[in-house]
């Protein structure tokens, strides 16, 4: 498969061969820059396919990176920065969707499957071990057995 190479290729009109974070964007405070990178990795480049703004070189991604850094320098917490970006661009911008009504199935799928699968396995194992000795004796059979034992 040609994977996302083609994504990149078709993005190239906006992209040329520049790459992600440029030296002029980097914040002077290294701790703040680390936070900025971590946040950028969670935000989607809206005009690209499946790329974070940290990886993308599109103009819009650059604008967002600068925006994230501005908010951080103004003293916003990580959550506040993300909330701000979401309020401006919508939830589409989050690469890890929030847990809410419309994403219940998405987040619940692994848990539900593990539980259902586990329960099914336990039940199957029980049925198998319970099933092997054969069906329990009926009352008539018990009587006959008692008779045989007594005689």
């Amino acid at each position: 498969m040609i994977r996302l190479l083609l994504a990149l290729v078709l993005c190239l009109t906006t992209v040329v061969s520049a790459l992600a974070v440029n030296p002029d964007e980097v914040l002077a405070d290294p701790a703040l820059e680390v936070r900025a990178r971590a946040i950028s990795a969670k935000l989607r480049c809206m005009v690209c396919q499946n790329q974070s703004i940290d990886d993308s070189n599109a103009e819009l991604a650059k604008d967002l990176r600068v925006l994230v850094r501005e908010r951080l320098t103004n003293g916003d917490t990580d959550e506040a920065v993300i909330a701000y970006v979401v309020s401006r661009y919508g939830e589409f911008v989050l690469l890890k969707p929030r847990f809410e009504a419309k994403t219940v199935i998405l987040w619940g799928m692994p848990v539900i499957l593990l539980i259902c699968g586990g329960v099914a396995l336990v039940l199957a194992a029980r049925r198998r071990s319970a099933g092997t000795p054969g069906a329990p004796l009926s009352d008539k059979e018990k009587e006959e057995l008692d008779k045989l034992l007594r005689s």
Partner: peptide, 29 residues
Amino acid sequence: TATATVLTGTLYPLVLEALTGEKISVGAP
């Protein structure tokens, strides 16, 4: 379960958008 998780994550945005028109992203994180 892992296969189903990757499958859900890959198709979820498509299905959600088709059903409700809402756009979300499911990415690396």
